[in-house]
Simulated assay, not measured.
Amino acid sequence: MTLPFYLRGLLLLTLIGCGWLLWQDTSDDLDSAPTAVVARPTEPAAPPSPVAATASVVDLFPAQTWTPAPPPTPVDTSPPKPPPLPFTVSAQWRFENQSKIVVLHGNGNQYTLCNRCSIPGRIVPGKMLDAHYRLDKLTDTTVVLTYMPLKHASTLRLDTH
């Protein structure tokens, strides 16, 4: 079987092209071949953590149940309540038809409350009793105190003798 001249030429060019591609492929591998280098690690490698090993595992068939989920726990959304009043009435009097003077005892201190008096250390409405309570109003029957962190007013009843 004889091949025509143009087919022989194409066959020869195909063989030359395949040889050239094979030569190019092997010459790159020889140039970039890794060389052996001895290197000492600066730190010992940490063992793989069990969390990382379990994080990559996906449970394709998780356990399922027909029982309904428990109801969510209710969240207390009520406003915060102030502490109970730490004050008690230890004395009260009226001098020469003036407004009532009240002495409160609480938090280890005594506080003298009056509307208009000249007693040293007195507390008049609008002044603070201690760091948390302010005297708002003093009448013949009540003492109104405001717990300042919550702005909550509390009333302390007085005896009416």
Results as ranks from 00 to 15, higher is better:
C114L: 01
A55G: 15
R122P: 04
S118P: 14
P48M: 03
P80Q: 11
G106N: 00
P84E: 05
N115I: 06
A52L: 01
L22Q: 11
H152W: 02
P34A: 10
T142L: 09
T73M: 00
I119N: 02
S27M: 08
A36E: 09
L85N: 00
Q110K: 09
N109M: 14
R8G: 06
N109T: 12
T73Y: 05
P79K: 13
T88Q: 13
L30N: 13
L135K: 00
K151C: 06
T2V: 09
D140F: 07
T65I: 02
T65C: 05
P50M: 12
R134Q: 06
A91L: 15
T65S: 07
T2K: 05
L113H: 07
S49F: 10
T65K: 04
G106K: 08
R116G: 11
P125I: 04
N107H: 13
P41N: 05
L158S: 01
K127L: 15
P72H: 08
L10K: 00
R134W: 06
Q98W: 15
C18M: 15
P71Y: 03
V143E: 00
L85A: 02
L150N: 06
P4W: 12
K81Q: 09
P71H: 03
S27W: 10
N109L: 12
T14W: 05
R134D: 01
Y111T: 00
S90P: 01
P50E: 06
A33R: 15
A52D: 02
A33M: 14
K151I: 05
T67R: 10
L11E: 04
K151W: 07
L3A: 14
V75H: 10
G121M: 05
W93H: 09
T2C: 00
N97V: 00
R134A: 01
W23T: 10
Y6H: 11
D140S: 06
S27A: 14
F95R: 14
L15K: 10
P41D: 06
G9R: 14
R116C: 07
L158Q: 04
I119T: 12
L13G: 08
F87C: 03
S56H: 08
V144Q: 08
N115F: 00
M148L: 15
V89Y: 06
L135T: 05
F5V: 15
A131M: 05
M1D: 06
T26R: 11
L138W: 07
R40H: 13
T77N: 12
P71I: 02
R122K: 03
R122W: 01
T67A: 13
V37A: 00
V103L: 03
L150G: 04
P68N: 07
D140N: 07
L113W: 05
W66M: 14
W20E: 09
Y6M: 07
